[in-house]
């Protein structure tokens, strides 16, 4: 039980990453693949935040009246997650744009039927 308490966030984060990966490996519909990518990115962001957590820490923002002595969580992973979210949005936008164009060409988003290129 203590194990679960201690590692709940890691388990959740990597659970999401692996679920996303499984979705990408097993599904054929492009939109589902993109959803898988999103789930994976969410998991990674959660993982980064969890790494930076310090027990009973608060957000690393100093109030006007000093705020000395308060325990603050590690700010670096939060900055990294900010960047990672923006990058995720960029990839997501590109993927959705391609899905729109592919649907225009093929009338379907099933990757098993979008298969003109061969070895």
């Amino acid at each position: 039980m203590t194990f679960l308490n201690e590692y709940a966030f890691y388990i959740g984060a990597f659970g999401l990453i692996l679920i996303g990966l499984l979705t990408i490996l097993l599904r054929h519909h492009l939109i589902k693949l993109i959803i898988g990518l999103s789930i994976m990115e969410t998991g990674i962001n959660l993982f980064l935040i969890a790494i930076g957590y310090i027990s009973r820490g608060t957000a690393p923002i100093f109030p006007v009246d000093g705020g000395a002595g308060t325990v603050m969580v590690d700010p670096v992973p939060q900055a990294l997650v900010l960047t990672a979210i923006v990058i995720g949005v960029a990839v997501l936008a590109m993927a959705l744009g391609m899905a729109i164009r592919l649907h225009g060409h093929y009338g379907t988003l099933d990757m098993r039927r979008i298969k003109e290129l061969k070895w």
Binding site: Y10, A59, P60, V73, P75, V76, L82
Partner: peptide, 29 residues
């Protein structure tokens, strides 16, 4: 999980305001 802050993190929390002038340490990073 929830262990000690990294060397980088504690340095930023301690010196972030003097180095960059931002009260929000995430912004200073």
């Amino acid at each position: 999980f929830g262990g000690n802050s990294s060397r980088l993190g504690s340095h930023f929390v301690e010196n972030g305001r003097e180095d960059t002038g931002a009260a929000n340490i995430v912004t200073s990073v």
